[in-house]
Design a protein around this nucleic acid. Structure first.
Lengths: 142, 142
DNA sequence: TGGATTACTTGACATTGTCAACTATGTCAT
DNA sequence: ATGACATAGTTGACAATGTCAAGTAATCCA
């Protein structure tokens, strides 16, 4: 008994609308001057202390590896990210945030979760519930 | 007291991951042959019986009007959508689904909410909760 | 060793997105 | 009415995003 199709349908519509609305609020001109929405998302996927293999990025974005090459080229040209060959497997290139990149990422996260953005309309308890539901959907309980 | 920044941050990360994962599951080759993710989203935003003014579409997608022109051009070329001048305001062009477009849209909605997609992992009650939270975020109680 | 696989890059190309300039229509003050 | 201004959509130029096929370098394994 998977679920009520009507709620699933409505939820999907709302999620899509949320995502496009989010774009409008992306502080490209302020916290991260000149960054596109996708570049913001990539930046936010790279945790400051941890390296992100390019392959894993392609997997997370569900896109072709050659697309990631271009995205990283542009982020590297802005000095936000560095490529570094992996020690264990020299085919793999690992991405690290530069100090500048880490700073921009912090500004981005602050901005995306602050007023009057959609997420700030939820109470702390509601946000916890939302996180739990999304974790179930993404099967990610890390 | 807006909320806990950590939950908001986590929620944002999960929503972004959900959206990119969604792309992978988009049945472009099956239910809607050759349709891009964005074209699928546009199609799903147009309700079968109701017309959608192009301006409202641009607003919903949070993008430039000229972008919508191109999107609609391609959907119209595929015979999924029709432009019709509005009666009240002849500057406005209203979009209608063609019978084919309505059929493809139905297949899309069925596919996006069926197994083993993320949304189907939630119980009916959880889906209701998710819908309620998203409605608060989007301030949309229609 | 050598053949297959994997990670990434390159080049060709379509889609998506922005901006500025344009057309046609609507609105409003006079 | 007329003219000034605003609005909806299109067009053209361009950058970013995305796919695919082919290529290179490194790894794996029989």
């Amino acid at each position: 008994m998977p679920a009520d199709p009507n709620h699933a349908c409505r939820a999907w519509q709302l999620l899509v609308r949320f995502f496009f609305l989010q774009r409008e609020h992306l502080p490209a001109g302020d916290a991260a001057p000149g960054l596109s929405p996708v570049q913001c998302h990539v930046l936010h996927l790279i945790e400051p202390g941890e390296g992100m293999p390019m392959g894993r990025l392609a997997e997370t974005l569900a896109c072709d590896a050659s697309n990631v090459t271009g995205l990283v080229d542009r982020l590297e040209a802005r000095g936000l990210v560095r490529r570094r060959p992996s020690v264990e497997d020299r085919r793999v290139k690992v991405l690290d945030l530069t100090p500048t990149g880490a700073k921009v990422r912090t500004r981005l996260l602050t901005r995306m979760t602050a007023h009057p953005l959609p997420l700030s309309r939820l109470s702390a308890a509601e946000q916890r519930t939302l996180v739990r539901l999304l974790e179930v959907m993404l099967d990610d309980r890390r």
